[in-house]
Amino acid sequence: MKQAQKEHTTKRYGMVIDLDKCTGCGSCMVACMSENNVPFKTDESNKLDSITWMQVYKLTNGKSYPNTEICYLPRPCQHCAGKHEGHSPCVSVCPATATDYSKETGIVSQIYTRCFGCRYCMGACPYHARYFNWWDPVWPEGMEKYLSPDVSPRMRGIVEKCSFCFHRYQLARNKVYLEGRKDLDEDEYQTACTQACPAGAIKFGDLYNPEHEVHRIAQPDMQHGGRPQNPHVFRLLERLGTNTKVYYMSERRWVRKAGDNYLPGEFENPGAVAGSH
């Protein structure tokens, strides 16, 4: 390269999902599949081998009729940073460097052509965000026409996962370069699920950037592994030290409690939680 590119545009892309707004409709899941060329089979009712980068979980408060409550929780790849930036559970274990953590965007990548299918990363991920291609992807005749050139279709025998629609970042950067600008605007790079969510429950942006919605809502404390300072915001399995970039928000206590494991009494008395402060 001719010119050294000294633009340190370090970002930490992340999400805030308002669980009180999420209706469980599944638009995020389908938008993701259709954006990212996710294949489908004739029978997808076995959820243990069904590829859904974005997966909506159904949580219940465990109470019986008529006090039952339900909450839906969309789960994309959490893009963990780990205890020290880049020490994601999956990235650190991949033997062939097929998955990587970008210090520039904070996004965990997965390179399909490098992966040889050992599935160690799947074992390491507590969120089940990683999916294996047990079958060759097959589209009914003629349906290949809708495949997007921005994302490579995957082959059998490798692992795939949510990329925060990284190709959209790349395409947005193209324009930024062309126009000689320095940086992306907040709305220039949005994931497909964020864009599709009819309830507006998903927000996406740069957690480092105080002007971005995600920062304003989650108020991440970057000095302490990005821990949210908004009391209604939580992260999944915060206590494992995965340091995820997907934040969840709910007014309901039981929902926030469901985000992590607690010994009896711990959730009620957060000061006692070991290792969380």
Binding site: M1, A4, Q5, K6, H8, G86, V91, D100, K103
Partner: peptide, 9 residues
Amino acid sequence: ADGHDSSVQ
């Protein structure tokens, strides 16, 4: 080129 060290790997 400088600034091209974004991979932790």
